[in-house]
Simulated scan of single mutants.
Amino acid sequence: MPIELLGDYLRLLADAATSGRKPDAAELNAVDLLGRRAAELGVSAGSAVQLYLSAARRLWQQLPAVVRSRDSEVVRAAAAAVLHVVDEAVARLAEGYNDARRQMVRWEETLRRDFVEDLLRGDADVGRLVERAEPFGLDMARPHQVALAAPSGRLNETEAAISSLERAVVRWAGDRDVLVATKDGWIVVLTPADTDVPGPRTGAKTLGDLMLAELARLPRGRPWRVTVGRPYPGSYGIARSYEEAREGLTMAVRLRLDSSLVQAEQLLIYRVLLRDQPAIADLVQSVLGELVHARGGAEPLLETLDAYFVTGGVATTAARRLHLSVRAVTYRLDRIKTLTGYDAADPAQRFTVHTAVLGAKLLGWPHRDLAVDR
């Protein structure tokens, strides 16, 4: 324990015992600074307070006013004065310590937030990024994967979610090389992808399964949706995995996927569709464009096509999914055939229509003008 943390504290105790003098504002401010210094040195608050209490006890046993005096009134007065100094000094020590810790936490949060931003953006200086990763325990040479968790609404108490999730991921992976943070209202989890070692991994089979199980225990944010990017090596690989996870969340919303867990591999076909947006926009417009002239607009007919394809082309099942009668579904399918010239039930035309429906969902049509994509 650094003895310099006592400063002039022993002198203040001695003055109080011999003359009853109370510390002035400047002397208490000095103790406040010593509390800040203790926090900067990494001394625990309990240890700092114990140092002050132990010093007071030892000094009391050696004070001449106490050792030599047989007058109980003198002893009581000295004790009261010393206890007053101890009380004020320890309070100011703790106050300075806590202020310093709050500032350090805010600074660490800023560093963490900036680091995460640069890490996920992927365009920062690699050498500098590797240096900044060391305090967070990240080995940039290892392959990592990124997972994102999106709450159903606004999540205010993020600290509880982050702490709980970080502990769970560390236990599951058996590795400290884990980073959990927030970005754009989502929880970001970065974990190494080369931890396939015997022993620690029990329970959840994948990172996504683990995250869903842990987040389901939280009182807020449910239901959650989790997307997981594929693992890649290096700092650029982290940014690439994050981009896959981010695209996964966007696509899951646009496609109205029922699954709470989406793996990047599941969305590869949709990424292929979006790779040439002018072409897919042209396909949507050419195949489905006439649906906008239907009574009620294109959206009800588009939803019917989507439900029809999702249920394997079974009108009865699609009707239950849409909460419609079978007759209403078959009427809509006939109406689509009349307007577009494409028959969703025809095996030769089904692929074209289905691809156009997927493209429409990915591009946000009919709410979005496809002219900007062509």
Rank of each mutant, 00 (worst) to 15 (best):
T352N: 08
V75Y: 04
H84V: 04
L138D: 02
L119S: 09
V31M: 00
T18S: 14
G96K: 06
V287L: 04
A281E: 03
R271C: 00
L12R: 08
R36V: 04
H354L: 06
D87F: 08
K22D: 10
A150Y: 06
R37D: 08
V43L: 14
L6T: 03
D209E: 15
A45T: 08
E247L: 15
L207T: 08
S19K: 07
R92S: 09
A252F: 09
V197Q: 10
P135V: 02
L288F: 05
M140S: 09
E157I: 12
L302K: 03
E134I: 12
R37L: 14
D196G: 05
F351R: 15
L358M: 14
E40H: 08
G127C: 11
L267D: 03
P23V: 00
K337H: 01
A168Q: 04
L28E: 00
R368E: 15
V43N: 09
Y242A: 00
E40P: 04
E134N: 04
E4Y: 09
A181L: 02
A356P: 01
R176M: 02
R256E: 14
D139A: 11
S163T: 09
A14V: 03
D8V: 04
L257W: 08
L268H: 06
M104D: 12
A45E: 06
P2K: 13
